[in-house]
C-alpha cells in the first residue's frame, strides 16, 4: 500500500515535469538538427562563380529547390516557383535554387524560364548536401520549405504542386 502511494506521487511528479517541459518550449530552444546545420553551413558558387553562403538567407521564409538540367520534372515545376516568388516577394519569401550542374548548363534555363530568384550550383559533391538535408535516395527534384526560425518545416521529393506550395507559404507568412 505504502509503496503504491509513493509510485502514484512519483508518477504524477514525472508527468508534471514532462508537461512543463513541453509547455515551456524548452525542447525547441535548440531545434536545429543536422539537416538545418548542413544546409546553412553550405557555401555554393552562384552562376558567376562567386561563393554564396546559405547562411545569408536565414531569417526569411525559404524554399530551397534542388534541381538539375537533366531532370525533366525539375524543369516542369519551376515556372510555378517563378509565379510564387512573384506573388510572395513582398512577404519576405525567397526561393533558392541549387542546381547540381555546371553553371554553363544552368544559364539557358535562367533565361528561358525567367527565373527570378538566386540559383547556386553544386557539382557532384552536391549529392552529399542533398543527402545531408534529408533526401536519402538522392532523387530530384527535392524541395525544402524553411521557416523564419531556420527550421525545416517541409520537404518533398518529386514535384511540389504549385497550389500545395502556395498554401504552405501562406501559412508561414
Amino acid at each position: 500500500m505504502k509503496s503504491r502511494t509513493f509510485v502514484v506521487l512519483a508518477v504524477l511528479a514525472a508527468l508534471l515535469t514532462v508537461a512543463v517541459t513541453i509547455l515551456q518550449g524548452n525542447l525547441y530552444e535548440d531545434g536545429e538538427g543536422p539537416r538545418e546545420r548542413a544546409l546553412f553551413a553550405a557555401s555554393l558558387p552562384d552562376l558567376d562563380g562567386n561563393p554564396q553562403s546559405m547562411e545569408q538567407y536565414r531569417g526569411k521564409v525559404l524554399v530551397v529547390n534542388f534541381w538539375a538540367s537533366w531532370c525533366p520534372p525539375c524543369i516542369e515545376e519551376m515556372p510555378g516557383f517563378v509565379r510564387l516568388q512573384d506573388k510572395y516577394r513582398d512577404r519576405d519569401v525567397l526561393f533558392v535554387g541549387i542546381a547540381l550542374d555546371e553553371p554553363e548548363a544552368v544559364q539557358p534555363f535562367m533565361r528561358e524560364l525567367g527565373i527570378n530568384y538566386p540559383v547556386l550550383t553544386a557539382d557532384v559533391a552536391g549529392y552529399d548536401l542533398l543527402r545531408a538535408v534529408g533526401d536519402e535516395k538522392g532523387v530530384m527534384p527535392f524541395t525544402l520549405v524553411i521557416g523564419r526560425d531556420g527550421l525545416i518545416v517541409d520537404s518533398k521529393g518529386g514535384i511540389y504542386p504549385e497550389s500545395e506550395l502556395d498554401q504552405r507559404l501562406a501559412s508561414l507568412i
Binding site: A68, W70, C71, P72, P73, C74, E76, E77, L100, Y127, K137, G138, V139, M140, P141, G157, G158, I159
Partner: peptide
Amino acid sequence: YQGCADAGLCYPP
C-alpha cells in the same frame, strides 16, 4: 545511366 520515374522525379546520373 540515368533515369526518372513517371511519378515526377529523377535519379542522379
